[in-house]
């Protein structure tokens, strides 16, 4: 059977599994939305800080759920894959003529699809509450593709950890780390408005800042080529590195001859 068909079957399984665990679909939707609601309302006064780039904190903060949703999807996908290692389901797959590439690509395909659906949902919520994209309809398309790329990048990271450790607990232990990356970024304020020096430095070194800023630029700025290039570049770099690492880990895990 062709590689594409194998990928299709693995992706289908990944999506079916996600949909059949309501907690795993509801949480990535509800939790970012709850944070979006309380933060955008709680910090709306921040738009009065001199130099704040927009007068809607909701529009400013709308970039956040795209990243947080991708993180949740990553954890779920990684946990699923680790469970496959633990139960021996991966051995079952290894005994079929399935190619290793199909497993990784299929798993990521499933994540990408779920990431896209989530992103459409977040965008719709933003639009429903009055956010207008400065980059217009083409910007929405670019935003959704960036969100999908981010889901793939983090998904591959989750897959790598799952295959390397083979333990769903270890994958969940990764969550606080990603959480730190998210919180120590420019998610709450633009970097140039962060007053504390060390925090601004950390946020500047933190790749997550650029992913957020890329998404954000499409919403509040319009077409900011530099922000988009950085976001797509960093997103792709994480994706490529993480996929290579995952493929290596899979090779160690599936030592079939």
């Amino acid at each position: 059977m062709s590689l594409a068909a194998q990928i299709g079957h693995i992706a289908q399984r990944s999506v079916v599994r996600t949909l059949r665990q309501p907690a795993n679909t509801v949480f990535p939707i509800v939790f970012p939305m709850a944070l979006l609601a309380v933060t955008s309302a709680g910090l709306s006064a921040a738009t009065e800080i001199p130099g704040f780039p927009t007068d809607s904190f909701l529009a400013f903060f709308l970039a956040f759920p795209f990243i947080q949703g991708a993180l949740f999807a990553t954890m779920n996908a990684g946990t699923d894959l680790a469970r496959d290692v633990q139960t021996g389901f991966l051995n079952r797959l290894a005994l079929t003529p399935m190619r290793g590439a199909a497993l990784i690509a299929g798993q990521l395909g499933g994540i990408a699809l779920m990431g896209l659906v989530q992103a459409i949902f977040y965008l719709s919520i933003g639009l429903a509450f009055g956010v207008r994209l400065e980059s217009g309809v083409p910007g929405a398309v670019v935003l959704l593709s960036l969100a999908t790329l981010i889901a793939i990048a983090f998904g591959a990271l989750g897959a790598f950890f799952a295959l390397r450790t083979g333990s769903s607990e270890s994958v969940q232990g990764l969550f606080p780390l990603l959480f730190v990356l998210l919180f120590l970024s420019s998610m709450n304020l633009p970097r140039e408005l962060i007053e504390t020096d060390w925090f601004r430095t950390v946020a500047t070194l933190n790749p997550v800042s650029y992913l957020i800023e890329g998404v954000r630029s499409l919403i509040i700025t319009g077409w900011d080529v530099q922000a988009l290039a950085l976001a797509f570049g960093i997103g792709s770099a994480i994706a490529v590195l993480a996929i290579a690492a995952a493929a290596w880990a899979l090779g160690l895990r599936m030592t079939r001859t």
Binding site: F183, L184, T196
Partner: peptide, 20 residues
């Protein structure tokens, strides 16, 4: 500690808001 650093460190400019 995450919350504290993210809020106190990241948002300190908030006390520049008029009326704060």
């Amino acid at each position: 500690l995450f919350f504290f650093t993210a809020f106190a460190g990241g948002l300190s400019r908030v006390d520049n808001i008029p009326g704060f």
